[in-house]
């Protein structure tokens, strides 16, 4: 090995053990709180926060890792939701299977969308996915024979499984599902992004697409793969949402819903997956306090988003990692 500079020790990548302690503590609090408090409202906040945290992380896997902003992301969530709901209602498909099928249909749709649009970049992808999202929303609205449109679709709950009773008013069973589901998705995305060849391709494309191409990376292939995967997860989480909320309307696919997910992803920190979880908790609890302001919520979202992008572009993830919050 050649002569190594002394100062390199400071800029060499090190594992942030302090960050790991914070995360572990947070996780423990996360897991036990709803079981201790035994209040339906608290459990609901936790379920929603975990759901949106996973959605945010998944969204960010495209936006933060590869710069692909899917402005129709909520529509893929909605596709998963309606798929599972309709399969359960009309064909008696077990909702547990519906979770997977919702994901697969959303993933296939994402794959097709990717092939069509991901030769484009930046703003054009955002626009196209935005329009596509709206198209899906209207498609669902204008086919009430299948989807009940704006009248609303009543969705059966998840069937009871083992010790999990989904008629429980405290909703702890749903919490026991979304907790491992969201954390698994995060772990999977983390593993894929950091420990695999595919993840290295993503990082290379992000670092320098020119150089990545010259090094043998096929940009379209990896962009489509990334995009389709995030759509798959949106579908799975959407299907869970359907059987949890038990009522679906086309407004689930609206752009406003994508913006909620985007806000959580960006406040959590672009490029960091786990940051979406604290960001989701922050936003969801904030939401509860701001409930009286209904429509004005979006103004607040906008202001927070702008402030974060100007002053804290690394989001919560960097704040916590740099201990600036303490």
């Amino acid at each position: 090995m050649g002569k190594v500079m002394e100062s390199d020790k400071n800029i060499v990548k090190t594992s942030l053990t302090q960050r790991n302690v914070v995360i572990t503590t947070f996780l423990i609090v996360l897991i036990i709180t709803p079981f201790i408090m035994k209040k339906a409202f608290v459990t609901h906040v936790f379920i929603t926060a975990l759901l949106y945290g996973a959605l945010g992380a998944s969204f960010d896997f495209a936006a933060g890792y590869l710069g692909i902003v899917n402005f129709g992301y909520a529509a893929f969530m909605g596709v998963g939701a309606y798929t599972s709901a309709i399969l359960a209602i009309r064909f008696g498909v077990n909702p547990w299977l519906g979770l997977l099928l919702g994901g697969i249909i959303a993933g296939i749709l994402g794959f097709i969308t990717g092939i069509l649009t991901l030769r484009l970049y930046g703003l054009f992808v955002a626009c196209f996915t935005w329009f596509l999202g709206m198209a899906f929303m209207f498609l669902i609205a204008v086919t009430p024979e299948i989807t009940r449109g704006y009248l609303g679709l009543n969705v059966p709950p998840l069937p009871n499984f083992w010790i999990l009773d989904f008629s429980d008013p405290l909703r702890l069973s749903y919490y026991s599902v979304i907790l491992p589901l969201s954390l698994s998705i995060l772990l999977f995305l983390y593993y894929l992004g950091n420990k695999t060849k595919i993840g290295l391709a993503f990082k290379a494309l992000r670092g320098s697409e020119l150089l990545a191409m010259a090094s043998g990376v096929n940009p379209l292939k990896y962009r489509v793969l990334n995009f389709a995967l995030t759509c798959f997860f949106a579908g799975v989480l959407g299907a869970f949402y359907a059987h949890y909320i038990k009522i679906l309307t086309p407004s689930l696919l609206a752009t406003g819903k994508t913006i909620e997910i985007l806000t959580i992803a960006y406040i959590g920190g672009r490029g960091s997956l786990w940051g979406s979880i604290p960001a989701a908790f922050l936003i969801i609890s904030f939401l509860e306090f701001l409930r009286p302001l209904e429509a004005y919520r979006f103004i607040i979202y906008g202001i927070i988003l702008i402030l974060v992008m100007i002053f804290y572009p690394g989001g919560l993830a960097r704040l916590i990692a740099r201990k600036e919050l303490f």
Partner: peptide, 29 residues
């Protein structure tokens, strides 16, 4: 490249690994 290109956010080792993997030399990390 005439204007030198690297993957700035990747380590020296990772920079070279990209070249090793995607050129088809080794698929094993």
């Amino acid at each position: 490249f005439q204007i030198v290109e690297t993957f700035p956010a990747l380590t020296v080792l990772e920079n070279v690994m990209v070249g090793a993997i995607f050129s088809g030399l080794s698929s094993n990390l």
